[in-house]
Simulated assay, not measured.
Amino acid sequence: MDKLPDTHSPSLENDVGAAIRELRKRHELTIAQLSEQTGVSRGMLSKIETGQTTASLDTLARIARALGVSMAMLFSRYDAVGASAQHIKKGAGMEVVRRGTKSGHTYHLLSYDTGPTKLFEPFLITMDDDSQRYPTFHHPGSEFIYMLEGELEYRCGQQTYLLEPGDSLTFQGTVPHGPEKLHRFPIKFLSVIVYPQAQEG
């Protein structure tokens, strides 16, 4: 008896890869041409399109830019196949390459926003190394931090705040912010960025 496909657990990698392949063909681009435009190797692009690997958000952003679409479009198939909820298993969040990410500093994106505009980004951030200084971040919208493990000082503008497990911090993302001093490892906290939405006229 043939095994029925599991419609309850669509593969994010397969759906993103299929969306990229469909968009590339719609633009009549070869993998070699897309590779040249994005700086991503042909082998990596092939693996992404066939769902054999998970691409970083930095790579997906370059692909989306080359295809002339928002990054949300790359997740549209996953959103359509799934139900009204998005379930990310422990350890399955996409690892994000962002400015400031170094060895021992890990950012996992816990939800992939698939709407026409980016509403929010929830990260699970883990730090177990303090060998290098952190850069200062700033972005649109508001940010909410909830401390899970460890202890650190977090800078927001001219102020620093000591964050311990159970503490939270909320601030405007346009204010320069970032970790200032790491006191007790391992450090783990949730960071949720909520982006401003255009008002409907």
Rank of each mutant, 00 (worst) to 15 (best):
F144V: 05
M147W: 03
M127C: 05
Q86C: 09
D79A: 08
G141R: 01
K102C: 14
H87G: 02
E149Y: 03
F75S: 04
Q199L: 10
P116R: 11
E180P: 09
Y134K: 12
V194W: 02
L119W: 06
Q197H: 14
K3L: 15
T59Y: 06
G141A: 08
R21I: 08
R133C: 02
M71H: 05
F185H: 12
S9V: 14
T174F: 04
Q172M: 07
L45P: 00
A55I: 07
L119V: 05
D2G: 12
T7N: 12
Q158Y: 08
P140M: 03
I145P: 00
P122M: 03
A55S: 06
E28W: 13
D130G: 06
D167G: 05
T117W: 15
D6G: 03
P10F: 09
L45S: 00
P186Y: 13
P196Y: 10
A64M: 06
G157D: 00
V175N: 01
Q52R: 14
A32Q: 13
T30E: 08
F137W: 04
P140D: 08
S103N: 15
R98C: 15
I31F: 05
S46I: 01
Q37M: 15
L162V: 06
I88S: 06
G68N: 12
G100Q: 02
R62L: 14
E28T: 15
C156V: 11
Q86L: 07
N14W: 11
T160C: 11
D6T: 05
H105R: 14
T101V: 11
V69L: 02
G201R: 01
G104E: 08
S46W: 03
G173H: 03
T170C: 09
M73Y: 14
H138P: 01
Q199F: 10
D130M: 04
A18S: 12
K47H: 08
K181R: 15
K118D: 11
E36I: 03
T136N: 10
L29F: 09
V40A: 02
E28P: 10
I193Y: 03
T54M: 11
G17T: 01
D79I: 09
Q132V: 04
F137V: 01
